[in-house]
Computed example of a mutant assay.
Amino acid sequence: MSRNLTIVTSNANKAQEVAAFFGGTLTVRHVALDIPELRSDDVREIAREKVRYAYDHLKEPLIVDDTAFSIDALNGFPGPYAAYVLISIGNTGILKLMDGVTDRNARFTTAIAFADETGIEVFTGTIDGRIITAPRGAGGFGYDSIFEVDGQTLAEIPLEKKSAISHRACALAAFRDWFIQHQV
C-alpha cells in the first residue's frame, strides 16, 4: 500500500530531513505555507496550533514541526524562540553568550504535529548535546554547526545518519509508529 505524507514548512531543509527519514517508505510532499506562529514556551502547543492552521487551509492529512533549542547555562534560552534568535544573533551571537561558560549542555526538542479529519496528534523527540566553542561542519542548517553529539556536530554528521538520530528523527519515529498503526 502506497502511503503519502505532506509536510508543511517554509524550511526546505526540514522537508529534506523528513523525506530522508522516511527513506521511501512514505512519499513525502513539501508544501510551503506561511503559518502564523503562536508564542508559547511549549513546542507541543506551538506545533498543535500550526498544524490546526495548516489543516484548515489545505484540508488534507499533514504534519508540521516546531523545535526548541535549549541551553542549560542560559536558563533554556532560546527555547522555542530558536528561529528568531538564529535570525537575530545567529550562531556567532550564541557563541558570544557562551564565552567563558563551562556548562555547555544543551538540547533540541522537536514536536511533530499530525492533523487529519479525525483530529490532531503530537509527538516529541529530544537529543542532548553540548555547545562547542567554534562552528564545525559544512552540512545541516541552523545551530547544527555549534551543537555536538558524541564528538561530532550535527553539521558534521551525514544527512542519512542525522535523519536516524536527531531530535526530529526521534519525534518522527514516534509519529511513524503511531501512523502505521492508525492509517492501515
Rank of each mutant, 00 (worst) to 15 (best):
R136T: 14
A155F: 04
N91F: 07
D56G: 03
C170T: 15
F77A: 13
R52W: 05
S166K: 01
N11R: 03
T102H: 11
F108A: 10
P135H: 06
E156H: 04
L62A: 08
Q183C: 14
Q152N: 10
V184C: 15
S166H: 05
A73N: 05
Q16G: 11
A111N: 11
I63A: 10
I132V: 15
A111E: 04
T118E: 09
I71A: 12
E156R: 03
G90N: 07
S10F: 03
D65C: 07
H57E: 13
D65W: 01
I94F: 07
K162I: 09
S40N: 02
A54K: 00
I165P: 00
Q183A: 13
T126D: 00
V43Y: 04
L172I: 11
T124D: 00
N4W: 05
G119E: 01
R39Q: 14
A19G: 00
L97E: 07
I157K: 01
T25N: 09
R52H: 12
T25F: 08
K161W: 03
N75A: 15
L172Y: 13
E121L: 06
E17S: 08
A174M: 12
T133K: 07
P78S: 12
A113Y: 06
L5K: 03
T124L: 01
D56H: 10
R107L: 14
V18D: 08
A113W: 08
A113C: 01
K96L: 05
K59D: 11
N13V: 14
H182P: 13
L58Y: 01
E45C: 05
I7H: 11
F69D: 09
I94E: 10
A134L: 09
R39T: 10
E17M: 06
D34R: 02
A155E: 00
K14Q: 06
